[in-house]
Design a protein around this nucleic acid. Structure first.
Lengths: 229, 229
DNA sequence: TGTACATCAGTGAACGCGCGTTCACTGATGTAC
DNA sequence: TGTACATCAGTGAACGCGCGTTCACTGATGTAC
């Protein structure tokens, strides 16, 4: 399981006495370990099947220890979702890769990054979108989500900007359409857990085809919006 | 909360002695009452926040009683999802209304029915799509889902059939695209619970615009595919 | 129409379990001087 | 460089709670004759 940030190894190593492999009194990096445990549990049993107590057990720590780092279970879940959005934003950004070699190619690749994220990080994905966290109550969550969406919007703006002024559709609408389309395909067909539905093609092919048809509908072709590879 | 099927009133009434409003020994319609209670609980607290015990309590029955009707909690959840798909299929069918007055208008209306279902039946929606039920292991669930999708596909077939033979896109692909698009908008922006995201327009407007652009990309206009109202 | 009997759909008490949470505590770490 | 002290990040025992599940049971209903 990739957990997004890298582990701080030094404190972990320093927290071992070295004698008989006994762990020192301090864990060294419990916060990270709890998040990592939560991701594993969510991936195995869904967002519901993760408890504070079990995360503590997985981290090899007493059930009271997590309270030093998170107010309660929901706070941990929100933190997982937050990291998920940050991770997600990075992957979309990498997929877009500043629009190289052409905006249209980059857009397809960014869609692929969306699907890859849903497939490879089911725990993050469900914490972000299906854990029932009230977005409006977690400002930081909402902002992180907005930043991730901003990457999609940026891409659409780049595509729109390459069109002649008279033929530019609103980039915001285009971005929302692309988001919804990617998200629908991701959560129905590309998700990395047992709820994935069968499909007579790859999710990537489905999304690519839909994107091409949609862009065609906006009057955008490889010629008008930048040459596709 | 609309629960899809109508209650069987007769047995409920007959289960009352009439003396002091005391309930008779037999509940009369416990199975339905449990499903109804499950829907309320899911709507209030998400798919995770529903327990067998609490459903029994809500139905005014001992905690052992549900075992006469459902093997376990998951069986009840699967039954809720199954009814959800049946209900969903009916609403899509009603939205399509046999393609009247024109296939394109009917398709938009069917998309609206998708969004309305997500908004008005959050409990069904999350049981169907977000409860983590393994679709592959519940054959009846999968079949019910396929039947609902069949309504979308039928609509797309009708639209395709109205085109000149040389210009017909594959209806299956078109239906999958429409499904993913509707589902993405529904689960991000139209859902009826706290996880709904803000949008600078109505979800219906967003879906309608996307559909029009998409159909345009397929070369389908009101003229070619039947006149829109 | 009445009676005997089988079956159905509940009761309610009991159980073990794991969870969330608290509490006073204590070993380890960091810092002032 | 050493010492005293404050703070940090854990322990582990304990608690109340609600859940899932079982059990022998029993009142209500349906049916055969």
């Amino acid at each position: 399981m990739c957990i997004g940030g890298r582990f701080e190894l030094e404190p972990l190593i320093m927290s071992w006495t070295g004698r008989g492999g006994r762990r020192s009194y301090h864990h060294g990096n419990l916060r990270e370990a709890l998040i990592s445990a939560a991701l594993d549990l969510i991936a195995q049993k869904g967002p519901a099947g993760f408890t504070f107590a079990e995360a503590a057990r997985a981290a090899g720590v007493s059930p009271a220890a997590p309270y030093r780092h998170f107010r309660d279970r929901d706070a941990l879940m929100a933190d997982v979702a937050l990291r998920g959005f940050q991770h997600f934003e990075r992957r979309l950004t990498a997929g877009w890769d500043e629009g190289r070699p052409s905006p249209l190619t980059a857009l397809e690749r960014m869609g692929g990054a969306y699907l890859a994220f849903a497939r490879e990080e089911p725990a993050y994905f469900s914490a972000m979108f299906e854990a029932g966290l009230p977005v409006a109550e977690h400002r930081d969550l909402q902002e992180a989500g907005d930043r991730a969406f901003g990457v999609l919007r940026q891409g659409c703006e780049a595509i729109v900007a390459a069109l002649p002024p008279g033929k530019r559709p609103p980039a915001m609408m285009m971005a929302l359409h692309f988001w919804a389309l990617s998200h629908g395909i991701a959560s129905l067909f590309a998700r990395g857990d047992a709820a994935r539905r069968a499909l007579p093609m790859t999710p990537e092919e489905l999304l690519e085809a839909a994107t091409l048809v949609y862009l065609q509908g906006l009057g955008i072709t490889a010629k008008a919006g930048g040459s596709a590879a």
